[in-house]
Design a binder for these strands. Structure first.
Length: 143
DNA sequence: AGGGTGACGGAGT
DNA sequence: AACTCCGCCACCC
């Protein structure tokens, strides 16, 4: 079942399309997807969209063509759901494509952003604002 | 039709 | 650095 309103449906589709751009073997965050699609204040709804990703392969976006497993939270942890199995399943999917998942002391399933993170520096909002990439960066994402 | 929940993240304490 | 609050809004009672 698709979402009720056309706006919500468009948002869901934007999320799915953005998630499809995450390269195999890489991960990004809910918040980053939200930024990429121009709604930086809606990371939570990105999670909602992925939660309701259809299994029906006859639809445009579904479980098999949207790499939902490549989206984790900003702390580098595979978000625990009401069902712990969901996170375990996500970890297995990531490991199957070469992502190293480590288990913390409390059972958190973690991924190292320094090695597996995908965070394109040029966002759609940057293009609209005419921002150009700057090579005199002050960040240090690599490790 | 109204209120609670939650695959998040940022600000404040 | 850990914890609480709060904005966000689609889904599910």
């Amino acid at each position: 079942m698709p979402p009720r309103t056309p706006e919500a449906q468009a948002f869901f589709h934007a999320v799915y399309a953005a998630v499809q751009e995450i390269p195999e073997g890489k991960v990004t965050t809910y918040g980053h997807i939200a930024k990429l699609i121009g709604t930086p204040q809606r990371p939570r709804q990105v999670g909602t969209a992925l939660k309701h990703l259809p299994a029906d392969t006859s639809l445009r976006y579904h479980h098999d063509n949207v790499p939902w497993q490549r989206v984790i939270n900003g702390k580098g942890i595979i978000s625990p759901r009401s069902q712990p199995e969901g996170a375990r399943n996500q970890a297995a999917s990531l490991q199957a494509e070469g992502v190293v998942v480590t288990t913390g002391a409390l059972g958190e399933l973690m991924v190292d952003f320094a090695e597996f993170g995908w965070f394109p520096r040029l966002l759609p909002s940057d293009e609209e604002a005419g921002v150009v990439p700057d090579d005199s960066n002050d960040d240090e994402e690599s490790g």
